[in-house]
Design a protein around this nucleic acid. Structure first.
Lengths: 360, 360
DNA sequence: GTGATCTGGTAAAGCGTTTAACCGAGCGCC
DNA sequence: GGCGCTCGGTTAAACGCTTTACCAGATCAC
């Protein structure tokens, strides 16, 4: 692999000159520029970014640490961040923590060794954020994504969970439901707490008491949606609607409903956080609070790069992105008699159930 | 950010000694080791991997260039590669090309500048692979993922598309179908060609003529699945089953079927490449050729690292990963009267259709 | 014509490591 | 007691680039 020295030699100039034509940091004559460029082309020379980084004490790599790229919410975020970053000459180095704080520590350490310019972080829950504190103390910019690291002052791009949940539950209430269950995430996570809070606020607004027996604490994974779904359906609660706090738990719940022979929305209305996109092909199409993942990623990356380049200064602040409620067929009017009317309000209406008889 | 010099100073040793205790490249006394380690801890020192990379002329970064991480097939691959790589001390630098060769070129160039040790590549289709040839000529190991770069000799981890498609279509034939349509990808891609080939082989085996009017060329995207689905359903073809060459086109087809009022599998059987995981919650559960994405990623990464470290030598070779056919409810016996029997053969049986009446 | 200014180029230091070469002290051995 | 080893540590060069300071020659004002 050729170096700047060989380019200089071939072009008959000094390495300083080569560097200047590459970076455009000084004027050169047309002739010299020409010679340098052809030398570069002929040698298939690529400037060594590693050497450059060492010299300028700055890389153009952004660390991106996420719980699990396999969760369909995150790829969107990554795309948003990557597109924005690439445009400005930055690169993403990604790693998954599986929500394990130990793994996160090792990843953050490795990323620090690589001297990433900044870090986009959706941290795993834990009560020891010392590795993040030290990271920041060492001068690396970090912006949190989707969740705060409690006790650590950083920029953050978060979803307005309270609002999303509140509007979603409000919608169920408007549809006549008064007994609405909730399947939450781990309540030690901020996200889960906020969504629960939105749920409670919506109920209180409508003077509906918050009933502990309608609150099911899950952990944001499919299995817990399934298990809690079984509990919810087996127990003789009188819930007519369920608000599920994320997409994959909803999948679990749907499985449970299938097994229990509970129909949606005829027997039970459903509204969920997260839009799985794919579910628009299958039935029931889900009423959902959709998070603009791409935008969140893009905004976070922009803030991070602005911090890195000093275009943004001052104390850290949080950006709350407002999600959108999309009404689809999984939520219906209560009592059932009113379903016909309810239907008319929906923006996205199913043409015909796929697995049900075509003509009835 | 402290450097090795400061650590050395604080520990009262030379920088060489510090390096040796970090890398374990030379024996040191217990006392010195102790002093160095505490100095490192107290200063919160992280070795500068950039400087190290410059010196040893090797990074531990692996470039991973994919068409689009938003396609649910790829995150699995990434996880497989990342987990394997991280274990061996490597990192993944990811970037998306959107199948645009221009973007791929820029990404490969950037990755070359960063002196990645190797590259995992699912290249965008094009008839000019010079950037890859030059990359290899410059000494960077590359292993292709999911698709070959035509005319470029590299290691590759590919799916046995012919076999997957053949077995899938064979299954439809065994279920009594004789008129089976196919929705392919862009036939200029190798993947699409191979799947078509498998389809044809299965038909020929069963002495069923290959009919041009049953072959619908799409482009692996949802929209084309939808459009071709409309065509297929509107035209009075006598297809009783469809084999779709990837998952998202199947989603498109399902939409078309919904609009046309065609039921699955009652009116039309379906089998598809790709397992969308999520579809197991919704109906119809899809009979699918599942690609072991995680394994593919892991194998590719292993090969790449073995090449980099010289543990693997010799001419490049291709690994063909065999997919698995999973029978579910979207494919049924033909004629319809036989459906009851067919059902018994399925490993995954639906309990009860979700949107259909619970008790009939 | 002469000193000041500008222009296009170069020399060289330094970024933070690794590592080959070196070196002195202690030690066992005849 | 002198020889050769081993052991534990150090010195210093090098990796490929950026960038400051410098320089020689051309240009210019007067």
């Amino acid at each position: 692999m050729p170096t700047i020295v060989e380019v200089a030699k071939r072009a008959g100039v000094s390495i300083a000159t080569v560097s200047h034509v590459i970076r455009g940091t000084k004027r050169v004559t047309r002739d010299v520029e020409e010679r340098v460029r052809t030398a570069i082309r002929e040698l298939d020379y690529f400037p060594n970014e590693i050497a450059r980084s060492l010299k300028v004490a700055q890389t153009r790599m952004l660390g991106m640490v996420l719980p699990d790229i396999t969760n369909p919410f995150f790829p969107e975020i990554i795309r948003g961040a990557e597109d924005t970053a690439f445009e400005r000459g930055y690169f993403l180095v990604t790693a998954n923590t599986d929500e394990q704080i130990g793994r996160e520590r090792r990843i953050v350490a490795a990323l620090r060794s690589y001297r990433v310019a900044g870090m986009l972080l959706a941290s795993a829950p834990s009560n020891d954020a010392s590795h993040i504190l030290r990271l920041i103390a060492s001068g690396v910019s970090v912006v949190c994504l989707d969740r705060h690291v409690p006790g650590v002052p950083t920029d953050a791009v978060l979803l307005d969970n309270v609002r999303g949940a509140r509007e979603c539950v409000r919608h169920l209430i408007q549809f006549g439901h008064r007994s609405i269950a909730i399947i939450t995430g781990h309540l030690k996570t901020q996200t889960a707490q906020e969504r629960l809070q939105g749920y409670e606020e919506a109920l209180r607004e409508a003077d509906i008491p918050v009933a502990g027996k309608l609150i099911f604490e899950g952990d944001f994974r499919e299995e817990s949606g399934y298990q809690l779904g079984r509990q919810l359906l087996e127990r003789p609660t009188e819930a007519t609607a369920v608000f599920v706090c994320n997409g994959v738990m909803t999948l679990g719940l749907l499985k449970a409903m299938e097994i229990e022979g509970v129909r949606c929305p005829e027997d039970l209305s459903l509204a969920t956080f997260d839009d799985l996109t794919i579910d628009r092909t299958f039935h029931p199409h889900l009423t959902a609070v959709v998070q603009p993942g791409y935008e969140m990623g893009a905004r976070a990356a922009t803030i991070l790069m602005d911090r890195i380049e000093g275009k943004m200064t001052g104390p850290p602040n949080s950006l709350r992105i407002v999600p959108t409620l999309v009404l689809r067929e999984s939520s219906a009017m209560y009592p059932k008699a009113a379903m016909g009317r309810a239907r008319g309000r929906r923006p996205a209406v199913a043409q015909r159930p796929l697995t049900a008889p075509a003509k009835q």
